[in-house]
């Protein structure tokens, strides 16, 4: 199967005077439609890795290919367009816009790239909200929902542009174990239904074990790479 993410010889060094190398000659690729998890101690470099994959950060050296496009050489505007069309983000904190309803929040990534919202997009937003179990509260303001509901809204939002890739950084880090379970099973459903590739950072061993592949990062290098 083709690789949707390909990282070659990635190094990341922070700081000007005192240099801290976070990633060391990393080579890593992820296949399309796969469900992957990245684990590692805090400070291991896993979030930096995810940010580089998500084009939010640039490697100090090395090449990054997302869906066949080399991204480390693109400018800010091109990256913004690429992120909007190809990548969905789920963070530990949902960062919904509190002034907008759940449904409006879900539609925002679409509205970033398009002037008008056609009917079929609205229906698609409803379908996604249904999928994450929020049909009843879809017209609530983001602030009028529980933490789990907000995070599920963020998941629906990540899916609205039908991205090929979803990057999640501790998506359930902030939630209780019941919500965590629901959210993971939702993500798995999406992976199967829409063939979306997932790369999820988690510190939860039980969650990581449910993935097709587990990559462990230790001190900026790949320590373990287990495929099921």
């Amino acid at each position: 199967m083709a690789n949707i993410i390909q990282l070659e010889e990635i190094n990341k060094i922070y700081g000007e005077k005192i240099k801290t190398q976070v990633l060391f000659d990393l080579n890593l690729s992820f296949e399309e439609n796969s469900f992957n998890s990245i684990i590692g101690a805090s400070g291991s470099g896993k979030s930096t890795l995810l940010n580089i994959i998500g084009t939010l950060d640039k490697p100090t050296s090395g090449r990054v290919f997302i869906d066949g496009n080399r991204t480390d050489t693109l400018n800010k505007e091109e990256l913004a367009v690429l992120r909007n069309k190809t990548i969905g983000f789920i963070f530990q904190f949902h960062y919904l816009l509190p002034e907008f309803t759940a449904r409006e929040n879900v539609l925002i990534p679409y509205r970033i790239g398009n002037y008008k919202v056609p009917r079929e997009m609205e229906e698609w937003a409803d379908e996604l909200l249904d999928l994450v179990g929020l049909t009843k509260v879809k017209n609530n303001l983001a602030t009028d929902m529980s933490g789990g509901q907000q995070q599920r809204t963020a998941i629906a939002r990540a899916l609205i542009n039908r991205p090929k890739l979803i990057l999640a950084d501790e998506p359930t880090g902030n939630l209780d174990s019941d919500s965590t379970k629901t959210i993971y099973s939702t993500l798995r459903d999406i992976n199967e239904k829409f063939k979306t590739t997932f790369v999820i950072i988690t510190h939860d061993q039980r969650i990581a074990e449910q993935a097709d592949r587990i990559v462990e990062i230790k001190d900026g290098r790949i320590n373990l790479d287990i495929r099921k």
Binding site: L56, E77, R83, N84, F91, L97, I112
Partner: peptide
């Protein structure tokens, strides 16, 4: 919120 908008690709 601005950060997430940018992550989502707002110019």
């Amino acid at each position: 919120q601005l950060g997430i908008l940018k992550a989502m690709g707002i110019l």
